[in-house]
Design a protein around this nucleic acid. Structure first.
Lengths: 231, 231
DNA sequence: GGTTTACCTTGATGTAGATCAAGTTAGATG
DNA sequence: CATCTAACTTGATCTACATCAAGGTAAACC
């Protein structure tokens, strides 16, 4: 299925920074190469160990990317929001996916096959360059997170992840985290109980307020920033 | 200074996978664009916060890339060995370096300026594609390491880093780690004392043997593998 | 090559956070 | 809408590792 929105215009990837500034011809080419698919909550877009030859771009919804350790413990690598892309390693290294991508809520994901992407990249070096820039940014984020994991305590990491995700969430226009707290725990590498306690502590300090299971309101973002920067 | 080895042939980057398969003309172009510089132990190739417009490729020696937390605690992101490259973020995002690159021993580093690299990439899409592949591999490594940091204990992380670096070191042809143990500690995010104790424990189990300050011999790599994979 | 210095080792103590356990609640499901 | 179930909370205990402290030792430097 090709990817068009209700107006009949192409959609999916055209609001993604990497794909901006294409000529009309290239746009048409790219548009032809896009396949979209819907996923319900809990469904997998791809799984660890699968062979793949496509780039995945999130159009709607949220995916979580996880890896399983040999003993079966799950670790959450990242969440993907609209405009984010995934599956890079399997795409470029012609290898296997090293993570699972699971829909956290009903989602639409666009797919561009390697063959088509390669063709577009080879005629558009600006786009290839933007791709390199986007990947170096992701690499920077990963490096920063490695640093945080190794020298920040649970409270600081929590403050950091809250700021990080609410910055993304604010784009989407809601302050309701579509993420279970145990998943939050999985991301920052602590036990769910610890997240519970730390969130309660932040609420007691008046920095955030909690409502229901997934409702987290940031009352005082600069206090969070102070905590996460304090080391 | 342009970069030539003692035979008068171009060197530095031509044994680096990304730069293979260039035409004669492109090789000449690239060769013209390479500047090399020597660094003594302890000297910095670049520093956090500096503006930069070059790609750095390690020719000889070892660099360590570190970040400083706001409070001044150092974390080691990675070591760079001959053939590795660094400075990607500042290069592609036209931003500032987010890490310090320091020579761990006498080193030679080659530099390719953005302007020249861009020119070469734009006429050689295969090379741009190889660059993307190399970066996706580094991203995978970073992701894997984030997972390890969050769900492995000190002993497993130590086993993993030993295997990781000795695989690289073996290429270079020595089993003598050019890295102080406190730096090893900095990489895996534990206290130096813990590294001391865990190494002693591994030696007691007959898996490694220690000699002098930086001498670590891997006696039983598969035992290390078993430890690092056991979760 | 002797001296200096930073690195390393080993032991003792403290603590953040994991784990275990048991009760509570929100939201999914039919 | 009622029920059911997975997620969450809160408390008690336990442990791996950090931190503090005080020698020892290799390597770097003159």
């Amino acid at each position: 299925m090709h990817c068009h929105d209700s107006n009949g215009h192409s959609s999916c990837v055209f609001h993604v920074p990497i794909f901006t500034g294409l000529s009309e011809q290239e746009t048409a080419l790219l548009n032809q190469a896009i396949y979209s698919q819907g996923y319900k909550k809990g469904e997998f877009v791809f799984r660890e160990g699968e062979l793949s030859d496509a780039l995945y771009v999130i159009h709607e919804g949220v995916l979580k990317v996880t890896t399983l350790s040999n003993a079966g413990k799950e670790h959450i690598l990242r969440f993907l929001f609209p405009g984010d892309f995934g599956g890079l390693f399997a795409l470029f290294k012609e290898g296997l996916h090293y993570g699972n991508a699971e829909a956290v809520e009903t989602s639409v994901v666009c797919r561009i096959y390697r063959h088509d992407l390669k063709a577009i990249l080879s005629t558009n070096s600006e786009m290839a360059y933007r791709f390199l820039a986007a990947m170096s940014e992701r690499l920077r984020d990963a490096d920063e997170w490695i640093g945080s994991m190794s020298l920040m305590d649970a409270e600081r990491r929590l403050a950091k992840i809250l700021l990080l995700y609410f910055a993304r969430i604010a784009d989407v226009g809601t302050h309701h985290l579509p993420i279970a707290k145990k998943d939050l725990a999985g991301m920052i590498g602590v036990a769910p109980e610890t997240v519970s306690r730390k969130l309660a502590s932040l609420e007691a300090q008046g920095i955030i307020s909690l409502e229901g299971k997934k409702g987290i309101h940031i009352i005082n973002p600069s206090a969070l920033k102070r905590i996460s920067d304090s080391l």
